[in-house]
């Protein structure tokens, strides 16, 4: 069920997820479009998430923006593309390459006590190599050690790639096109911001529609949402993900399209990374339980990192 409406306020709105924003020229959403988008959100009962550019918006926008409950990505939620020395906001997205994540693991660990929630977002999942597995595991173990200490001191730390899995009993994925939809400054809907960037830049040529030149939009504010093959965005239509218990995984359909050309099928890389996180979460949970600090549901021991390798068994 649709729950969130993500509104890109400008073409240069901050990238907060896996895909980079390649758009460099400012293109502010027209005020009328913004008003219509808010009206759409109100009627469909959607929680609004505004995505901000790095400049101040004209005053008349602020009034409209404040006319409904919302979250401001790029403001309330701060987005960093490198590890900052210190952090002022409580909710942070840290976008890093896998190599940087591994190299800066101690700096990242040092941020954990400063924030309520840290979301790590890897920006080059597609180029993850199996020979990075051990390094990634080690970085997760470093973060686990800090998380454990925070729990011991009575805190409830949140690091998406490790602690989310502790509480989840079912899949909780990105949900692009299913639980959330993105509205771009042109007044059109996209499954997520990456599909808008792709339309403007022709990044992949293979996303969502027949011809390289075709649009990636899935409706607009006038005609409403028109998502083709909406069932293929749902978990029950994803043969690998529906048998998987890496419940915290983003299950990024943008990456799916890019890597396997089908948006219900994940790549090997996405699955392996999510399973390394799942297994590290399992280690953390075992320790927390041992110490009586958390009573989460057991995470099973498994001997694969990619559900594709064991698909015949399900």
């Amino acid at each position: 069920m649709l729950q969130y409406l993500v509104i890109l306020l400008d073409d240069t709105s901050v990238a907060y997820c896996h895909a980079e924003n390649p758009l460099k020229g400012r293109n502010l959403i027209p005020l009328e479009t913004l008003k219509k988008a808010i009206l759409f959100g109100m009627k469909e009962n959607l929680m609004i998430q505004y995505v901000y550019p790095d400049y101040e918006l004209p005053e008349e926008y602020n009034e409209v923006i404040e006319s409904i409950d919302h979250v401001k990505i790029g403001r309330d939620v701060a987005v960093y593309n490198e590890v900052p020395k210190s952090i002022a906001t409580e909710n942070v997205v840290l976008r890093l390459s896998i190599a940087d994540f591994i190299a800066k693991q101690y700096d990242i660990a040092a941020l954990l006590p400063q924030v309520t929630r840290l979301n790590i977002c890897l920006t080059d999942i597609e180029s993850f190599k199996d020979d990075q597995v051990e390094d990634y595991k080690k970085a997760l173990a470093t973060l686990n050690a800090v998380l454990l200490n925070l729990y011991k001191s009575g805190k409830q730390p949140q690091l998406n790639i490790l602690t989310d899995r502790l509480q989840l009993k079912e899949m909780h994925n990105c949900g692009a096109g299913d639980s959330n939809i993105t509205l771009a400054p042109n007044g059109k809907f996209y499954l997520c911001p990456a599909f808008y960037y792709d339309e403007k830049m022709g990044i992949s040529n293979r996303l969502n529609h027949h011809k390289p030149s075709s649009e990636r939009s899935v409706g607009d504010l006038e005609a409403g949402l028109q998502i083709p093959n909406p069932q293929l965005l749902k978990l029950d239509h994803a043969p690998l993900c529906r048998i998987c218990d890496a419940y915290h995984c983003n299950r990024c359909i943008w990456l799916n399209q890019k890597m396997t050309w089908d948006n219900n099928t994940p790549s090997h890389q996405q699955c392996v990374l999510a399973h390394l996180e799942r297994n590290a979460a399992r280690d953390l949970l075992l320790k927390l339980k041992e110490m009586g600090l958390l009573a989460g549901e057991e995470i099973k021991q498994i001997d694969y990192l990619d559900p594709f390798d064991v698909r015949e068994q399900f």
């Binding site: 690998l240 219900n264 594709f308």
Partner: peptide, 15 residues
């Protein structure tokens, strides 16, 4: 590129 084969090798009738 094994990623490009994954949709084919996970296809089933009902999905």
């Amino acid at each position: 590129d094994k990623n490009k084969l994954r949709p084919f090798l996970t296809l089933d009738r009902c999905t």
